[in-house]
Design a protein around this nucleic acid. Structure first.
Lengths: 333, 333
DNA sequence: TTGAAAGCGCTAACAC
DNA sequence: GTGTTAGCGCTTTCAA
């Protein structure tokens, strides 16, 4: 077993609470004993036990982050923001990858609560899980919901204005005289992404164009699903002249499908994405897309948790932070 | 405070150790009381306290993962492998992003040990930290080192044969009659990447070509560092006709620099990368590169830890797992 | 300033 | 099968 404060106390000939006080920098010890304790602790290679401390203090300096897919650069960038901000505030992060699986997400929530994290940041895969986490988290555990403002229950949410983001980019296509616009999305159900469909429809209506169901495909959030969805669309009798993809990874799959078939982007079919992942700006890709402040959203999530933990803000209000999307025009649309 | 086994015991009129036995599925309770306990636990919305359990059991079902840069798809894919395998074995993962910063890495190691993780998976930023983590981890805590076999101390390491990987790809360039090959790397010091430089040199020697120092730039592991390094090379009087980049992210930066200057890849200058990140296979990129089994390496790391934890393998041997790299020829070189 | 005692929530060893 | 007791390593009263 490892060295404990009792071992140090024995060696220093003092009581172990004094060692505790000395190590944690609390008042109540002479600077002389403090120095002595610190020296002995170092000599003995003492490693504090955060579990024991957490058990009595009822806080762990630990937070949980649940995201659907760490391979999607959108989420890794958010995760980086969370990680950086947490580190600068002395918090450790449990990373959980739900894989767009609601059950797995649920298990992770239980795991995090069992580990008594001080807060949870969740990018939900379904609206049902938002109520579930609120129920499980109870009145005390702060939760930040990312990517959607659909939080009937009390919690903090951080998201961009998705309707506006989609509208901006579809209007852009329409201004460029594209008229047959497809929507390739992930999965209906979450407000964050449903809002993008709404923005798409809104833009079409603004131009007096009909919403055609055969032009709307919702197939999953990955590169492959974008690839397959585009191929399906191309096999239809009526082809779109432009595509609005619900995220950049889908857009990349769409472009892959087009180029594989020998079609040019945007000359034959234009493509716009959503998120502005780093790859989008690469020469050879040059994806027109809608920028989200991903990294900042991750940092904000931790700040919000932290201010609740510090008692600076009330834990159980329904606080919605809605950020601005920004259209980034490049070459694909 | 939350519901404890004592609360359940009170309600069920039994002792709380019986509740513990019932909940943890251990023998020593009648199936009747077990059912009763389970029912009450559910009613009261009991959430077990993993901290308390860990404190007495001296294990946490928790592991730590320290990587340099979650934004690099190479690392996010490794992280995904770790995460998936950990989840399937009931382990939670602390994610730590060292940002190529040795001090930050050191702090994370302390943090993980304080949280009494059952094992650590480390992609080290410097060889010094390998000895440091071994010293801190002591005799009992298993450590898996990723990306380098440079583990003088006892620990498990998982890596591909980097010399061979680099050699394969440089020989490929040489076979294609490129003769002025630049090496754009990250930072010297870690065997994993130093080995790639060695492979580069080995290939040149094999063809009787000189190793020229002005053709070797080591500048950092990011897109920007690749971009800048290539620009510096282009400003020199003598230009390379091909570039071996130490990883794909650097290679993307290199290509970006070339295209921005109006140079064609590979007609003017060929580029090969290393890692085979998903982006590499994209139409419009088509990067020739060396594939590493990233996801599998992440899974393996957890399996190795797990078998040590299960007592199936000895904790403190120096076990080196060296995997095969694979050259993937696409269009850039 | 220091020490003694209690307790965080749980599991494990031992009686009954 | 069940209860009693002790203790994991630490912080936090409360006395001295």
């Amino acid at each position: 077993m490892s060295v404990t404060i009792k071992d140090i106390a024995k060696k220093a000939n003092i009581s172990y609470p004094s060692v505790s006080r000395a190590l944690s920098g609390k008042p109540g010890v002479s600077s002389k004993t403090r120095e002595k304790v610190l020296k002995i602790a170092k000599e003995m290679n003492y490693q504090p036990n955060a579990l024991a401390r957490s058990l009595v203090q009822n806080r762990t300096a630990t937070i949980g982050l649940i995201i659907p897919d760490i391979l999607n650069p959108y989420f890794s960038e958010t995760a980086k923001g969370v990680e950086d901000e947490a580190h600068s505030r002395g918090l450790s992060v449990f990373l959980c990858n739900s894989d767009w699986d609601g059950d797995r997400e649920g298990k992770y929530i239980d795991q995090l609560i069992a580990n008594r994290v001080d807060g949870i940041i969740l990018f939900p895969t379904s609206p049902a899980n938002i109520s579930e986490i609120r129920r499980k988290a109870g009145r005390k555990l702060p939760v930040v919901i990312l990517g959607t403002t659909q939080t009937e229950d009390v919690s903090i949410s951080i998201s961009i204005d998705n309707v506006l983001g989609a509208e901006l980019s579809v209007v852009h296509l329409l201004n460029k005289k594209y008229r047959k616009l497809a929507f390739i999305g992930g999965k209906p159900g979450l407000s964050g992404v449903d809002d993008r469909l709404e923005g798409y429809k809104k833009a079409l209506e603004k131009f007096g164009l009909p919403v055609e169901n055969e032009m709307i495909v919702e197939n999953g959030f990955t590169f492959e699903s974008g690839y397959n969805a585009m191929n399906d669309l191309l096999d239809q009798s009526r082809r779109p002249d432009a595509v609005f993809a619900e995220n950049d990874v889908i857009a990349m799959g769409v472009i892959q499908a087009l180029r594989t078939r020998g079609l040019r982007v945007p000359e034959d079919i234009a493509v716009v994405g959503f998120d502005d992942i780093p790859m989008a700006s690469m020469a050879g890709i040059d994806l027109t897309t809608v920028r989200q402040p991903k990294y900042e959203m991750g940092k904000m999530a931790v700040s919000e948790l932290h201010s609740v933990l510090q008692g600076e803000s009330v834990p159980n209000v329904n606080k919605r932070l809605v950020l601005e999307p920004k259209l980034i025009i490049r070459k694909t649309g």
